[in-house]
């Protein structure tokens, strides 16, 4: 089975830089992290590889400087990694991103695509279903457990969570699966000996020369949505009362609760 893991390297949400004039993220030379749910997705793929054999390819889109993160996935057990990187792709919205990723995945070949259901930065949850649509594959997100379906020739079993419902699905391949952060899949630590190993021969960079999008099809120009402006969220100050954590303060809170009917006197 060929598994492709979609991984997004995101700006550390605590310290990100945003170009307010151009309305794009400045991703170069800034502290970045692997989107946590995407790590779970790679862990899920490696688990499947261990249990029933699979070839795992990690695919990511972003600047060339992201190569180091992808090499680490190979050190963790992935077979190879593909970084899709081209100046033309910068500023793409989810629709264009999905088209680019789908093309990259098609080039790699796949039976199963696994990614994180959400990313911490954009958090639209749209890319995987759109990739599924473009690849003509099945889609299920919020998956907490995934395993091969022994009963079916080409299929998997997936547990998903929808709020309080726990759902079990039989899904035929090809399929795109969004892993939930609740899944408990965790990447193992990289073995000390592997840290220094050169993995660059197993990492490939794909540019638009391979993907062949026309001018205007990608980036801001090809996007179907446009960010007009962004602004830090502000909240207006409410009339407020500051009290101390002493008897008078507690009494004030208590009387407030009583007055608003939050306490039943009986």
């Amino acid at each position: 089975m060929k598994i492709v893991c979609l991984v997004k390297i995101i700006p550390d949400v605590e310290h990100f830089t945003y170009d307010y004039d151009k309305n794009i993220l400045v991703r170069e030379n800034k502290k970045s992290v692997v989107n946590p749910e995407d790590s779970c997705a790679v862990a899920a793929a490696l688990r499947m590889k261990e249990k029933c054999g699979a070839e795992v390819t990690v695919v990511s889109m972003g600047p060339v400087s992201n190569q180091k993160y992808l090499e680490n996935f190979i050190r963790c057990g992935a077979d190879r990694a593909v970084l899709i990187s081209d100046e033309m792709f910068r500023g793409s919205d989810t629709y264009v991103t999905s088209r680019i990723l789908a093309k990259g995945i098609e080039l790699s070949g796949f039976d199963l695509v696994i990614g994180g259901t959400h990313s911490l930065d954009g958090d639209t949850g749209q890319v995987l279903p759109q990739v599924a649509e473009l690849l003509d594959a099945e889609i299920m997100s919020h998956v907490t457990e995934i395993r091969r379906n022994e009963q079916a020739d080409r299929g998997i079993l997936a547990e998903a969570e929808d709020g309080k419902k726990k759902l079990t699905f039989s899904i035929s391949l090809p399929a795109v699966i969004g892993i939930s952060g609740e899944s408990g899949y965790k990447l193992l630590y990289i073995r000390y000996d592997d840290w220094k190993k050169d993995m660059s021969d197993r990492l490939k960079v794909l540019t638009n020369r391979e993907l062949c999008f026309g001018e205007g099809e990608t980036g801001l120009a090809g996007s179907r949505t446009r960010v007009l402006r962004t602004y830090p969220k502000k909240f207006s100050d409410k009339e407020k009362r500051v009290v101390q954590n002493d008897e008078a303060g507690i009494e004030y809170v208590y009387q407030f609760l009583l007055e608003k009917g939050f306490l039943n006197d009986d």
């Binding site: 949850g125 749209q126 995987l128 279903p129 179907r224």
Partner: peptide, 22 residues
């Protein structure tokens, strides 16, 4: 919501239109 998000994304891809989440 769970299915709304997935369905909306698949539909937007079918129609080739933009989709804004959340």
């Amino acid at each position: 919501v769970f299915m709304g998000r997935m369905t909306a994304a698949a539909l937007a891809a079918k129609l080739g239109t933009g989709l804004v989440a959340d």
